[in-house]
Each structure stands twice: as C-alpha cells, then as structure tokens.
Computed example of a mutant assay.
Amino acid sequence: TIFLDEIGELTNSAQVKLLRILETKEFFRVGGTTPLISDFRLIAATNRDLKESVLNGKFRADLYFRIAGTSIYIPPLRERPKDIPVLAYKFMMELAQSKGVSFGGFSDDALSLMMAYHWPGNVRELKNFVEKALLLSEGRVIRARDISSYFEEHSEFGRSLPTKFDSSVPSQLIFDNLQKIWEELKAIKMKLSEIETEKKLSSGSETLNIEETEKKLITSALEKTKGNKVQAAKFLGFSTKTLYRKMKKYGLR
C-alpha cells in the first residue's frame, strides 16, 4: 500500500508519470534503465476539491477518474469541534510519552477556547499547538490564560472560513454528546490529579511517571467499558493489538 498525501499538489508532469504507473504497474528506479513491476494499492489524500481542480485544468481528468474509486470525505476540524478535546488529549499523551515529560491536561476554559477556534491548519495545526503547549506548561494544567495569545495572533486566519452545521441534528442530541465527552475528559483529569498527588506524597517529585499514568488510564478505560477491550482501545486511541500488548506489559487482565 502506498499513501500519497496532498496529491492535489502534484505537478502536471508528475501526474502523467503517476497515471502511467497506475495503468502499467511499471516504474524505473532513479538512473535505472530496466522497468520494474509492482502491484500495489494506492491511498491518496488532499485538502483540495479535485473535481474543481479538474474543471480548472489543474488536475488531469484521466488521473482523477483512475484514483476516485472510493472517496471518503473527512470534514475539517472547524466542522467537528467536539473532536478537538479528544484529539488534544490523544496528542498530549503521545507527545508526553515520546518526549518523556509530564502533562497536567487542559482546564475547561482552555478547552472552550480551543473549540471556538477555526483551526485553519486542521489536525496538523492542533497537534503542533498541543506540542508547544505541552513543552511550555512544564507539567502544569494548561489554562485559557496560557494559550489565549496563540488564538489572538492567529484569529485572522480562520475568520473567513465557512462552518457548516447539520440543522437536521437535534440540538439536544449535540449537547448530550458534548456533555458525555466533557464528563469523560473530567474523569481523566481527576485520575491524573490523583496520580500526581500520590507521586508528590511518596517521593516529593512533581514529575508524573508516564508508564504509571498510562496504566491508570488503561484501567480507567476498561472500567468505563466494563471490560470491553475493543471499546476501551477505541476510547484510548489504541489498536486492539496495542491495548493487549500494554495490558500484558502492566499485568492487567
């Protein structure tokens, strides 16, 4: 499987080469003279409207119809604000573990600011923002006053972007779903607070042990899902295989 990101940015010459490879399954190594054959599956992504690009002559119609077998539309982040807290905590956990630093999470007012912002850079911008906030927080809970300057500096980028809402969805249903997410996030924050308190009492250190935090979160997720490992893995952002591996690592059942 080959994944090509931002396929809409390909030059015309690159589009011709890609189309030939897709049709013949043949390609040449750089500097090579012997054709090589490869049978592969192509997955491509773009933030452009390729149909419009075809009409404007910026994207080849034959290549478009060659790759447009199955299309999945993922709305921009500004159209799904309820995903922002979930993604932010997922990125925070991943970055904290990879960098070996502690994290205190986001306060409610900080999450409200994040959900009100348009995120013109979509998920990439959110991940970069979370990384910056994590490094500057030094393990503290990130509050609105800590991040408000970012949104003030970048507010002009997102103001002209349209936001679509599905009026057929009852407002009460939207509220209930948001409330459920808030409660889950608060539960995670409480767990983190308990762990941090225990660490301070036992060793006087303000640095959270990442593995202990992860173990606590996995235990909490399993409790919430009544032992359903598929749902627990989905809640934590893991694959089921990864969850089983981590459960074995921490001696969980």
Rank of each mutant, 00 (worst) to 15 (best):
residue 27 F to K: 00
residue 42 L to Q: 03
residue 232 A to K: 06
residue 155 S to E: 05
residue 212 E to V: 00
residue 38 S to P: 01
residue 228 N to A: 01
residue 84 I to Y: 10
residue 151 F to C: 08
residue 242 T to N: 03
residue 165 F to E: 15
residue 58 K to D: 10
residue 218 I to C: 05
residue 30 V to Y: 03
residue 239 S to F: 06
residue 168 S to K: 07
residue 165 F to L: 15
residue 228 N to Y: 03
residue 94 E to I: 12
residue 92 M to H: 02
residue 144 A to N: 13
residue 201 L to R: 07
residue 182 W to P: 00
residue 195 I to L: 15
residue 234 K to W: 00
residue 148 S to G: 02
residue 61 A to R: 15
residue 156 E to D: 08
residue 143 R to W: 00
residue 126 L to P: 09
residue 140 R to N: 10
residue 156 E to F: 06
residue 62 D to P: 14
residue 48 R to E: 10
residue 94 E to R: 11
residue 32 G to W: 14
residue 122 N to H: 06
residue 59 F to S: 05
residue 213 T to L: 03
residue 208 L to P: 08
residue 106 F to Y: 13
residue 196 E to D: 15
residue 66 R to I: 08
residue 69 G to T: 02
residue 174 I to C: 07
residue 52 E to Q: 11
residue 83 D to G: 12
residue 204 G to P: 07
residue 202 S to E: 05
residue 63 L to M: 08
residue 183 E to W: 06
residue 211 E to L: 07
residue 209 N to Q: 02
residue 105 G to R: 07
residue 91 F to R: 02
residue 71 S to I: 11
residue 181 I to P: 00
residue 192 L to S: 10
residue 75 P to N: 08
residue 91 F to S: 03
residue 129 F to N: 05
residue 111 L to H: 04
residue 244 Y to K: 01
residue 164 K to H: 10
residue 197 T to D: 10
residue 140 R to T: 03
residue 84 I to C: 14
residue 202 S to M: 10
residue 12 N to C: 01
residue 162 P to Q: 09
residue 131 E to K: 10
residue 214 E to N: 07
residue 228 N to H: 04
residue 20 R to Y: 07
residue 161 L to K: 14
residue 163 T to Q: 13
residue 196 E to A: 15
residue 20 R to I: 09
residue 122 N to D: 13
residue 27 F to R: 02
residue 248 K to W: 02
residue 224 K to P: 00
residue 141 V to W: 13
residue 155 S to N: 04
residue 136 L to F: 13
residue 198 E to S: 15
residue 172 Q to Y: 13
residue 13 S to P: 01
residue 27 F to V: 04
residue 81 P to F: 02
